[in-house]
Design a protein around this nucleic acid. Structure first.
Lengths: 349, 349
DNA sequence: CTGTTAGCGCTTTCAA
DNA sequence: TTGAAAGCGCTAACAG
């Protein structure tokens, strides 16, 4: 039995306050409020009333210190400003906040140092789990993660990653795009890849060469150009591709940003899309809440849609599952993509 | 002087572990590590070495319990999926993470119950401050907030709000739009408002009527139609506006989503934009990383840009300032908007 | 300059 | 069925 120190300050009431109020011990209050352990029904009611009346709410901090569980998770994201990420985050949020977890959201800006600092800070805060969205996990980060709470990777994953992973079916995506173009008669198809350090980019690139081979199309030198997912890299790539002979009749861009910049470049150089060149994107980043077309009705980008929201939900669920049973078998979840044929692809001239 | 309980488990080392390792008291370790208080330089070095070697990191939780400060802030957002919000969040993140705060990001989905639950949970976690982005603050939420940590409002604010606020200059935005249209010869201008519960929407609406009066334009009945910021409301509003006689020659939409849906509707009904009707948006939601135009080069929406990133930064700074000096004078920060003239406005026919 | 002590608010044995 | 007591890991006042 303890006395609260001062009664004048208007601070959050603690268990001690309630205990005093009811003339009971803190232990009894704890039992009554948590519902576990025996406590006289009348007193229990009394305690609940007092708690409600005084507006008592348990301190998450104190509980966390005691139980070593914080009911919080960390989410690492490259850049919240890139429209595909908020969708994923939303999916994660939907499932984890239903499980009463709160999210620490952190931007890494594709910066390994920041990534490391953020993981440290998350561990210092003792998050119960971590989700890394499209992160290239550095060795240092990896090392930290190993001794930390469960984590799941979304989109990207290191070469031989043994843990939980959720990602889109990149091979399927590339196949959908290529079959569409092949069906339109395209044979000279170029590909602007993502950065080599992105596993997703590598997977797509490999799928591209494999699928082209399967379709019996050769890939002339210069048709594979490396970009970095930034719009600006599309401009350089497009320039290089226009210089190729023979010139490609279709260009697959690493993502929608790059695709749009390619289209801009082509326009500036007197080429019409899709008449003179077919161009496709990746992600369906701009769709947002619109169903069929892009913001402006004029023209829509042919692209392949990743199930972004679902990626987030799956990741959230995978993490919850892992936190519940740390030694359950590893899960790898690959979700199907869907092709959206719009206005930037046409039969090969 | 204390003994650590068990030494086999590979857990995070605590101060006690370091103290034992160095044969010193925890207090000394604490002083050495925190840098405050005197401690023998040699021992200090020793302690730092041990800490580094053992990979010691202070527990944020324990510190928070002791100091009652968590170095975390809560950010409430309506829907992270709406492209204007990530920009704001990014701005907040930039400044607060530089100040070593971590962000709890929470979606409220414009739902008052969720808003309340989230604020409760944030208070339970003892965040040091809260930023509410575009929230209609319910009375219950308001009451909670009053006894909580400092908070700042962004975009929306309740009728008579006495606290810190950061928002765009809505009057300026409307003026820019109207002067542009007026200059093009438009006189019959309609306005699709945002929902009445949004203070931002109300401010814009009031500015609209005021400005129209100033320009000497009357607002025929039916020219002011209430929407709710959702694309779909643009459809209904457009339908209503087409039925007006005389028909307006220009439509101001509450935001870009609504504007696009209006344009879609007009197209479907055989009207060309901007030839037959000028349409403007609000927010420049789609700009993202592109400078001049919308995703596709075909056509860009004439709209007024809110300084989203800057709104976030200002809010972050205002919160930091408030946390540092809780009784500094209240700050109201209004940031200028900029008009982006693109392809959906033209001289009145 | 260093150690002892108390305590943040909660959970959880262990006795009574 | 209840209370006493210990302790999560840290900070800070105080004594030495």
């Amino acid at each position: 039995m303890r006395q609260p120190r001062d009664s004048t300050a208007i601070k959050r009431p603690t268990m001690t306050d309630i205990a005093c109020e009811c003339g009971l011990s803190r232990a009894t209050v704890a039992r009554a409020l948590s519902g576990k352990g025996y406590v006289n029904p009348e007193r229990k009611a009394l305690i609940h009333q007092a708690a409600a009346r005084m507006g008592y709410r348990a301190s998450t901090i104190a509980r966390a210190l005691r139980t070593q569980r914080t009911s919080s998770i960390g989410v690492l994201i490259a850049d919240i400003t890139n429209p595909i990420f908020p969708e994923i985050v939303k999916g994660i949020d939907e499932v984890v906040s239903a499980g009463d977890y709160t999210i620490f959201l952190c931007n890494t800006d594709e910066d390994a140092r920041k990534q490391l600092a953020i993981i440290r800070s998350l561990l210092d805060r003792q998050v119960d789990g971590i989700i890394l969205v499209s992160q290239t996990v550095s060795d240092e980060s990896q090392a930290l993660l190993k001794n930390g709470p469960p984590y799941v990777l979304v989109n990207r994953r290191p070469a031989r990653h043994g843990g939980d992973y959720v990602g889109p079916d990149n091979a399927m995506a590339v196949r959908q795009l290529l079959e569409h173009l092949y069906g339109l008669g395209h044979r000279r198809i170029a590909y602007i890849t993502g950065p080599a350090q992105s596993s997703t980019a590598r997977e797509r690139r490999d799928s591209f060469t494999a699928e082209m081979a399967r379709l019996g199309c050769s890939i002339p030198p210069g048709y594979l150009v490396e970009g970095n997912y930034q719009a600006e890299s599309g401009r350089r790539a497009a320039e290089a591709l226009l210089a190729c002979t023979p010139r490609p009749t279709a260009i697959l861009a690493a993502n929608d940003f790059v695709a749009l910049e390619v289209i801009s470049f082509l326009h500036e150089h007197g080429l019409q899309v899709p008449e003179d060149m077919s161009v496709t994107g990746f992600d369906d980043a701009f769709k947002m809440r619109f169903s069929g077309r892009y913001p402006l009705p004029a023209q829509g980008l042919t692209t392949v849609d990743q199930p972004k929201r679902e990626l987030g939900r799956s990741a959230g669920n995978a993490l919850l599952a892992r936190m519940a049973r740390p030694d359950a078998p590893v899960r790898t979840i690959i979700l199907p993509t869907t092709l959206n044929i719009r206005d930037t692809t046409a039969p090969a001239g």
